[in-house]
């Protein structure tokens, strides 16, 4: 048990490595691939909401931008895997920066509403800029990736491709979490004024969170587009943003293993339901809603409670501190 606890990541990796050898069914493997895409998304959103405490609602926009960059560059310009990957990371990083700049002064509810708006604007943009995105019809026949000499076509090979990206992402995120940047994010979430008083550049750190979150979502979109070979605005709606947020909250805000478990539950449960009781699958949104309500009532910290993390979703009621926060807002406006 102790060994398991200490090497949780190693054990999970081994399990993930042999899983396709045990369950070699393309339909199941496809679900696993989608699950890992959601893990990437949830890891990205967790940086913004979980670590930094910025409740961003339009996260699917970043996902969509990554997917559309991939679709356009591969279909229209014939670029291959690695060049497109670089474009997606840079493009999404810039988008994260640009969308981060105007929302830096906002917190809590206001931030949520503005990011929700940005998310919808992006989706409508996909719908209406036909020259670039082909409108509601979407972009189809996106080529499967070919890496130097291996062509990734089957769910089996996609599974391993995704696994590589998930592992690298987790490694980087864990490293950042246990560094001055990770501590600064949590400090900002806990108390912005105190964080700035010990020398943390709040704007810069929040932008880092937005940029990294956006890059991870872009990576997820990049892989999604090539796996589905088709993108349309329908894949990047508010419901998709809500689902990712759901996974993060369910798993445990700010906890990397937590959000992984959260994403696995939220992507696999509906599929299991479909197998057991086919009629029930249509009600999955209802189930997600119920799960969230139950979690918020009985375990607001998520399945994996991260001791040092507090949910930004819980309002602090200390009137005096709020007063001081007001005064901070005053200085930022001036």
């Amino acid at each position: 048990m102790k060994f398991l606890k200490k090497n949780i990541y190693l054990v999970s990796l081994l399990a993930a490595l042999i899983l396709p050898l045990i369950i070699d069914r393309p339909d199941y493997l496809s679900i696993f691939v989608i699950t890992m895409i959601y893990i990437l998304l949830a890891l990205g959103l967790n940086i913004v909401v979980g670590f930094c405490g910025l409740l961003a609602l339009g996260f699917a926009a970043f996902y969509g931008i990554g997917a559309y960059i991939t679709a356009i560059l591969t279909v229209k310009y014939g670029l291959t895997f690695f060049p497109v990957l670089i474009f997606v990371l840079i493009g999404n990083g810039l988008i994260g920066l640009l969308s981060g700049l105007p929302v830096m002064r906002l917190r809590g509810d206001y931030l949520a509403i503005v990011t929700l708006g940005l998310g919808e604007i992006t989706r409508i943009f996909f719908n209406n800029i036909e020259v670039l995105t082909n409108g509601p019809k979407g972009i189809s026949s996106i080529p499967n990736p070919s890496l130097i000499w291996i062509s990734v076509k089957t769910p089996f090979s996609f599974y391993y491709l995704l696994l590589v990206f998930v592992v690298i992402s987790i490694y980087f995120i864990k490293n950042i979490e246990n560094s001055r940047i990770g501590r600064a994010w949590v400090a900002i979430r806990e108390d912005e004024i105190a964080a700035s008083s010990v020398g943390i550049n709040i704007t810069k750190m929040k932008l880092y969170a937005f940029i990294l979150g956006s890059m991870l979502a872009g990576l997820a979109g990049f892989l999604f587009a090539q796996f589905q070979t088709f993108v349309s605005p329908d894949s990047f709606t508010f419901i998709d943003s809500a689902l990712v947020l759901c996974a993060v909250v369910l798993g445990g805000l700010g906890s990397v293993p937590g959000v992984i478990i959260g994403s696995i539950l939220l992507t696999m449960l509906p599929e299991l339901l479909r197998d057991i009781m086919p009629g029930l699958a249509d009600y999955r949104m209802l189930f997600f809603g119920l799960i969230l309500i139950i979690m918020m009532l009985f375990r607001p910290q998520g399945i994996f409670k991260n001791l040092r993390r507090k949910s930004e979703l819980l309002p602090s009621s200390e009137a005096v501190r709020n007063e001081e926060d007001e005064s901070l807002a005053e200085y930022r406006r001036s």
């Binding site: 501590r183 949590v186 806990e190 108390d191 004024i193 105190a194 008083s197 040092r308 507090k310």
Partner: peptide, 27 residues
Amino acid sequence: VPHLVAKLGIARTFQNIRLFSNMTVIE
């Protein structure tokens, strides 16, 4: 701005305690 002031070598505490409550003491 506060973070530049901190860099210059002026540190402060607060009248209403403003710790990072859900981080450990050492953190």
